[in-house]
């Protein structure tokens, strides 16, 4: 270490990049975000405070119109519930898959990872289209059900919330799995052996050892699924159909068909605020559950 004194003093601690200050390096992206992200969102807020459709004067009219109509509250509730149902369904199927992944050999882990990422890189529109083929009147499910004599006439799955939740389960599951698989692979297998040798059943080990350790990854995954499912406009409109109204279709309708920007902006902020609130709760729950173990 004595020789270090003879060397020229390093200019920047941990100099991963040359000669530029950390904030200087982040500045170009920061400016792009300010111009194309922060400013548009600010504009969205501003537009929601126009009182009239022609945007001639300011006022709280749109907010009053939005908040004092129980229909809009029902739409908000339906949107958030749809997100929660998607989260529940993806966890029900995705968590067991993550457990299998944890126990698999490295070779099979790679195969499983590939299977999870492949749908993620296949366009959301393609995945939505797939479910039309599967859930339609003459779709795969109905052919099976009719062929096995389980029903006398085709089931109605498209344009129902059940069909939409089934589709979202597949469409969003990779988003749950990526962070979940990442924490699963970091869990020390010795803990499972210890739990078993102390007489715990696999179920007890699952709920008392694995689940708390996986909580941060699970929360991160749930968060992404919720955010994506609540804003999945194309899946909602193509599979859910016109009779199921969620905030995204309402926003699109108001902005592009009715050309009522102030009201569309108000609805968009309602989506932003309500989704962010639920996301904050999920993130907090993940931190609490994770903190108890990791902290």
């Amino acid at each position: 270490m004595s020789s270090a004194a003879a060397l020229p003093a390093p200019r920047a601690r941990g100099a991963a990049a040359p000669a530029l200050s950390p904030w200087g390096l982040a500045a170009p992206l920061g400016l792009a975000y300010a111009a194309f992200f922060a400013a548009p969102l600010f504009m969205l807020f501003a537009v929601s405070f126009y009182a009239d459709e022609q945007m001639t004067r300011f006022g709280l009219d749109q907010w009053r119109r939005f908040l004092f109509d129980s229909f809009h509250w029902k739409v908000i509730a339906d949107t958030l519930l749809l997100g929660l149902k998607a989260v529940a369904a993806t966890v029900l199927l995705g968590f067991p898959l993550a457990l299998v992944y944890r126990a698999a050999s490295p070779r099979w882990q790679r195969v499983l990872l590939f299977v999870v990422i492949m749908p993620l890189l296949t366009s959301v529109v393609v995945r939505t289209f797939a479910w039309i083929v599967i859930l339609g009147r003459e779709g795969v499910v109905n052919q099976l059900v009719l062929g096995l004599g389980l029903a006398a006439e085709p089931l109605r799955l498209l344009q129902t919330e059940l069909g939409l939740v089934i589709s979202l389960t597949q469409i969003e599951m990779p988003l749950l799995l990526l962070p979940l698989l990442s924490v699963m692979s970091r869990i020390d297998p010795n803990l499972m052996d210890a739990s078993a040798s102390l007489g715990a059943s696999p179920w007890r080990t699952l709920f008392r050892v694995i689940l708390p350790l996986a909580a941060p990854g699970l929360a991160a995954g749930c968060l992404l699924v919720f955010a994506s499912a609540t804003t999945a406009f194309i899946s909602q409109s193509v599979i859910g159909g016109g009779r199921l109204v969620y905030l995204p279709s309402m926003i699109w309708q108001q902005a592009m068909i009715a050309a009522h920007w102030p009201f569309a902006a108000t609805a968009a902020i309602a989506l932003l605020v309500s989704v962010s609130a639920v996301i904050a709760v999920i993130a907090y729950a993940g931190r609490v559950a994770g903190g108890r173990v990791h902290g």
Partner: peptide, 30 residues
């Protein structure tokens, strides 16, 4: 103990298998 091991393997195994079918099936069908 073995009964709970059996139920664990059965439930987790079949849910994971269903997850795989749901993930990949639609893509192959399209």
């Amino acid at each position: 103990r073995s009964a709970s091991e059996l139920s664990y393997g059965l439930v987790i195994g079949s849910l994971a298998a269903l997850a795989l079918v749901v993930l990949v099936g639609p893509i192959l069908i399209v």
